[in-house]
């Protein structure tokens, strides 16, 4: 997930059912990896810049599992400016 760097991530709200497009963007890494023909642990995505309105973004991971209601989003060391 790409989250605006200056906006704290609201992880209480489910970002999948209530996507706040102003705050962040969730690329489907599984799908993007298939398109780029790469596989985990390598992650590749090519996304449109259109919804990325802020100046800088931080990359988070949202791990999902069928038996778990919520997992804490995991922050990565990667931030970038546009």
């Amino acid at each position: 997930m790409l989250q605006q760097r200056d906006v704290p991530l609201d992880w209480i709200t489910n970002v999948l059912t209530h996507p706040k497009s102003q705050q962040g963007l969730i690329p489907n890494t599984e799908l993007e990896n298939d398109l780029a023909k790469t596989s985990l642990p390598t992650v590749t995505f090519i996304i449109s810049k259109k919804p990325l309105i802020a100046r800088s973004y931080t990359l988070y991971f949202l791990l999902m599992n069928e038996s778990t209601p919520t997992l804490h989003p995991i922050k990565t060391n990667v931030s970038f400016r546009l």
Binding site: P41, T42, I46, I47, S48, K49, N77, V78
Partner: peptide, 29 residues
Amino acid sequence: PPVKSIKLRVNQLYQTRDKLHFTGTILGT
């Protein structure tokens, strides 16, 4: 949370006129 942060090694990160390209590898999987 059991995992607080994940380290990524960025292989590629660049932007074209309308797209953002990213390739990274998760470390310590």
